[in-house]
Design a binder for these strands. Sequence first.
DNA 1: CTTGGGACCTGGCTGC
DNA 2: TGCAGCCAGGTCCCAA
Length: 269
Amino acid sequence: MPELPEVETIKNELLPWVVGRSLTEATILDAKLLPDSCVEELEHELTGQMIESLERRGKYLVFHLSSDKSLVMHLRMTGRLLVNPKESDAHVRATFCFSNGIQLVLSDLRRLGVMWLVEDAQAVVGKLGPEPLSESFTPDDLAQRLSQHRIPIKAALIDQSIIAGIGNMYADEALFAARIHPLRKADALSVVEVQELYHCVRGVLSSAIARKGASVDTYVRPEGQLGRAQLDFRVAHRRGQSCPVCGAPIERTLVRNRGSYFCPNCQLL
DNA sequence: CTTGGGACCTGGCTGC
DNA sequence: TGCAGCCAGGTCCCAA
């Protein structure tokens, strides 16, 4: 599932294909993709537009167009962006043809992905919390934000308005690395614990970007290769397997209705 | 106001 | 073998 490292990888690998290129044709095959606009209007508005730049904000992709509008995309659980896919695909939801002859395909098995064409991308991404990997984001920022919430720390880490880009998998990995139980209250962590968590969040995300994302479930990179970050996972999706630190079996519990994997011995409540 | 839980969506897997 | 039900989870929406 695309979280920050996966979306960052998609952005990096898509960049050379689309930036500076013009859209010759846009085809939306699933109206559910557009919560706020109609298919024909959006197809028409996109045609002829040049992609001036492409950026990631949280888990969103933002295509800045020559019309000064922005196409903002969220892949949610199973959305994929593929360049010139060779294999046939029953879940294609949109296709984009570019002036350099390439075809960009949006495929989405569970149909939860969405996109918006907006005057100002802030209308979509404005409510997001800080980027965890930005230089301006400090341990004090994290401490200040966590201190305002009584919710489980796991729920706080995946709340996009508190901090942007972390999803279920990387929240579990960061909490394991920091030896913090997912159900601890966000505002009850010590200064030392928050500092440790800050470094673990950044470490886990940076390593995953270096590995080009985690290919669990449906994630593949735009040119079809798999990511390798899942090979580093120590607790995520490893219920029953041995904790790499102490050997105890990894457990799964629910936090806000999300499966949460942790070591009951290393991460005490 | 905050917090928590369900809905959305589909296909693979598990267990009876 | 068949099939019901669980599981995956990002975000929105509603209720307490």
